[in-house]
Design a protein around this nucleic acid. Structure first.
Lengths: 207, 207
DNA sequence: AAATACGGAGAACAGTTGTTAACTGGATGA
DNA sequence: TCATCCAGTTAACAACTGTTCTCCGTATTT
């Protein structure tokens, strides 16, 4: 359906991606609200005015980065949802997947963690919306699990939110953990997940 | 022990506090890494150079803000630790205390949530260190609870970390929740805490 | 082959930034 | 009372910012 796009549009997308990449790198040591458009174009080696051919503002670029970063995360979440929940091996595998994702895309993870509560409204809203959607997908997957029998939709969403928040939290912990402590951090995350799973298993117990 | 400090030091502390207050207000709509020193002095109505009499840089000011913000939070945590954990009324009271704190100091809460993973290293490190200390205090309090019999120190810290992270998370949720949805948000946080408490209660069960 | 569309360059603008140096005037301590 | 201290001021600096307008060269379309 998509014929090979002309050399013109190709070049455009190429510089656009270069701008996104440069911005992502610059954002490793600062927040989006202090990122200047000239700073980005300088890093790419392009005139400042060229920026406007692709984005209205750095906030606009930020929203594009959200899509890019959470798009790749979406892949990870989908993988996790294809399998049954709650066994210990499953938990270990989940944490391992998160760690692998952080290793593969550290800048993306840092960007999401940083701008989730950051100073640019449109961007933090975009992140919140996408994470909320993740939670809904997780809740939907959870509802197909036999262990979720008797759960209200509200409670399923509550649990899903806990899982999503824990995922982001764990990813950001991995970011600031030196490699020699990776195992310790992974073990911690696994035990936390195990505790939540225990709570889930006894959620409907009569007190 | 502290004699009434001279009118000179008094004035100094007064402007220093004015700088902190102005900065905190400006930070409601941006991140610390984009906060300019002139911006702050302008808001206070003082010459830009006066800034240097109090702080080396805006990063320095940020660290001072961390102490101020987490100092007031320390009060809240202490209150929570004076009582036994885990009963449903206790959970409700905990969430209510968090909500009250957010109502009383919204700017402080926003600052902590925003800069916890923010672009100024010294500040995010300071926040991380203080939250880690909170977790240790919580773990110490938990260890005095009969329900913690048989728990390793490592597992207690794991649980305490979960509680602290959930507290920060809940506070930041309250920040972005319109007043009419306060009850819903509170109910959600309570159910999450209840699930964690259930997991805690069954942590040592034989599987 | 000619006309158009368009990504990018260049120059200029008014306004901002952090930092320096030398200065002022009132509180402080002998 | 007089010399000292020091929080805050004034002025100036080079460097930087976002944005506008005008222009260029080439891929695209007719």
């Amino acid at each position: 359906m998509s014929h090979t796009l002309g050399i013109r549009q190709a070049q455009k997308q190429k510089t656009r991606q270069a701008l996104l990449d440069a911005a992502l790198q610059l954002l490793e040591e600062q927040s989006l609200s202090s990122l200047g458009l000239r700073e980005v174009t300088r890093a790419v080696g392009v005139a400042p005015t060229a920026f406007y051919r692709h984005f209205d503002s750095t906030a606009d670029l930020g929203v594009a980065l959200v899509d890019e970063a959470l798009g790749s995360l979406h892949t990870v979440v989908s993988e996790l949802l294809t399998a049954t929940w709650d066994s210990d091996e499953r938990i270990a595998r989940t944490v391992e997947l998160i760690a692998a994702h952080v290793r593969a895309h550290p800048a993306h993870v840092r960007f999401i963690a940083r701008e989730r509560h950051g100073g640019v409204q449109r961007v933090s809203e975009a992140i919140g919306a996408q994470l909320g959607q993740f939670a809904e997908e997780v809740a939907a997957a959870l509802s197909h699990d036999p262990e979720s029998a008797g759960w209200t939709r509200e409670d399923l969403l509550m649990l899903a939110g806990l899982y999503v928040d824990h995922m982001v939290m764990t990813a950001s912990v991995f970011l600031t953990t030196p490699p020699e402590d990776f195992a310790r951090a992974a073990g911690l995350a696994e035990r936390q997940l195990r505790l939540v799973s225990l709570g889930r298993r006894h959620w409907l117990d009569v007190s």
